[in-house]
Design a protein around this nucleic acid. Structure first.
Lengths: 234, 234
DNA sequence: GACTTGAGTTGGTTA
DNA sequence: TAACCAAGTCAAGTC
């Protein structure tokens, strides 16, 4: 990992073109040659970047300082993608720091609470859609992608469940596609839909209910507690 | 901008929980107190982060080195969001570098080639949907969001155009929602749809054509040339 | 402030 | 490899 703090400008050409005027910034060059340019502003996204695999060519040129009173060295970093025509040219004017560190292996991040976990617990606790419900399977395959959960409710009705952490309109559309498709299967029809999420936007709830879907709010902590509890029981 | 290179571990609690085992990493602290933790792996996304507004509390503790042969100082950075309950605790074990730089103002990034530009040129060159077509307006407002372009084709039929750089199923769904809604307006009906993009996935094309929408491939460079050309003419 | 949409989205999984 | 879907997505614009 090489970290450069410098006055720089940059120009990116690829899926779009982007121009970065001269200013002080931080340039990170990872060991795979990927490059990130950061400013104080914004969140975690760099202003410009190049992802691996790419090749960096460093040129040293003689230029002038902004007040033209003496010669100075300019450096350009030409970063070219090896897979596409994308390229990024960074010009360094004044370099304040240029250090390289060996970070070694990254053991990786462990996450808890993603959609997959919601799906896991809801499949395990399928009674949450109504006492007596029975799980058919998680990730029930269809030609247009897997349905998060397919179940049979206590009335014997096939039930497709779309799970989101935050439910928006797009999720309702997704559920609509699945229910429409599954209803063409005479062995399953009629199929109803449940839109299950930790939070659901009012617009999405309205759309879902318009289409005859039930909305189910999921409490992750509660589901996790119940899941952990049943593990200790067996 | 403060840049720390150190052996660290981290724990995030917020919308989910995430745990980062001990390893050498780069920690960036921006002037607004936002924090980013990077490793060599992955692309521009940090392993963990906290966005502004947040408060950092730095604690210095006496701990033991991993081989327990002598005391050492540990530092923890406790980063708490000021708006939510999110918090991130970083423990620093061995610090290799800890420097602060003043980057000053960021003049900002200038982009060319985003969806907005496609929309601009297509509105200007509305003939691309058929000779004699006439633009009604860009960003035609509806209760469910603005339609990218509304036009009248050479048959006098109202035409809703959804523009994407890369057209996928979600874009077709979006167009469907708009066309369905606009068709309820007796002053506009019947309304047809055009799905316009630089690239369209085969599935999206199939879905769009199933729904009676025309698919239109846009050549950005060509549109830009034509746009620039007409500017020089007037 | 809530919601929708775009992004050089990135990243993971599967056909 | 291509396409779909989730993400602590982020960020901009609108209502």
């Amino acid at each position: 990992m090489r970290i450069i703090v410098a006055t720089c400008s940059a120009e990116y050409t690829g899926r779009l073109k982007a121009n970065l005027p001269q200013a002080r910034r931080v340039i990170m060059i990872k060991s795979d040659s990927s490059v990130l340019i950061f400013s104080e502003a914004g969140s975690y996204k760099p202003l410009n970047w190049m992802i691996a695999p790419c090749t960096i060519t460093e040129h040293h040129l003689i230029g002038l300082t902004t007040d033209n009173d003496h010669d100075t060295y300019l450096t350009t970093l030409e970063v070219a993608s090896e897979k596409t025509t994308d390229h990024l040219v960074i010009t360094l004017y004044e370099v304040f720091s240029d250090q390289t560190f060996d970070l070694g292996e990254e053991p990786g991040l462990v996450k808890d609470g993603v959609e997959d976990h919601l799906q896991h617990y809801l499949a395990e606790q399928i009674d949450r859609i109504g006492k007596g419900a029975r799980l058919i399977r998680r990730e029930y395959p269809t030609p247009i992608g897997p349905v998060d959960i397919l179940a049979v409710d206590n009335q014997g009705i096939t039930t497709a469940i779309e799970i989101k952490r935050h439910g928006g309109i797009a999720g309702v559309e997704q559920l609509t596609r699945y229910v429409t498709l599954l209803n063409r299967d005479t062995r399953l029809a009629p199929v109803r839909g449940i839109f299950a999420a930790q939070t659901i936007t009012p617009q999405a709830r309205t759309l879902a209910e318009d289409r005859g879907f039930e909305c189910l709010i999921l409490d992750y902590e509660e589901m996790k507690d119940e899941g952990d509890h049943s593990i200790t029981l067996f």
